[in-house]
């Protein structure tokens, strides 16, 4: 896994919070600003060793998904013409997950500074909840209604215009 060219790395190893190792191509890793920063720092120092980047906040399940996203987007990094195809892929990609996974993926995207994925997740979540009723929201996010019936009625009253 040693770098083939003289002073630039071609691969990094990323460690998930549950101690699984992932070998990641540099171009793919660069989709994450966090990983890119680590690589750049090492390259500046002129290290030829393979570097290990531990991600203490991301489980391997979620990391697999982030890397899947990064891989796809690295493939498309050089051409803009396939934007439509990529958008389609993005949508299909997120559609597969339940909300709990989406939340975790969003958080991982934030932590790894993968802005396009963060943006994508936030928009996806927003789009899929904006037409739901309050009851449905509580259900899908498993949120407990912590208002008394009176409190709930009061808030509904104050915001009556929004419920019309």
């Amino acid at each position: 896994m040693a770098s083939s060219s003289s002073s630039s790395l071609s691969r990094v190893v990323v460690k998930s919070s549950d101690n699984n190792l992932f070998v990641v191509n540099k171009k793919v890793a660069s989709q994450s600003q966090l990983l890119k920063q680590c690589i750049d720092n090492m390259e500046e120092k002129g290290t030829n060793d393979v570097i290990l980047i531990p991600l203490s906040n991301v489980t391997s399940n979620i990391l697999t998904l982030v890397l899947e996203y990064c891989e796809k987007h690295a493939d498309f990094a050089d051409d803009d013409n396939n934007n439509q195809e990529l958008k389609q892929w993005d949508h299909e990609f997120l559609k597969k997950f339940d909300y709990a996974t989406l939340n975790s993926l969003t958080m991982a995207a934030d932590y790894m500074v993968t802005k396009s994925l963060l943006n994508l997740c936030c928009q996806f979540i927003a789009d899929s909840i904006k037409d739901l009723t309050v009851q449905q929201i509580r259900q899908i996010f498993d949120i407990k209604n912590d208002f008394t019936p009176q409190e709930e009625a009061d808030i509904k009253n104050e915001n009556a215009w929004a419920f019309r």
Binding site: I125, N145, I155, N159, A162
Partner: peptide, 24 residues
Amino acid sequence: PKDIIFDIFSRIPLKTLCQFRVVC
């Protein structure tokens, strides 16, 4: 994290946000 919740909320129409005040 708060920032992510804010990011998601701010993509939702104002009227819907006001309905969501009653979620929890």
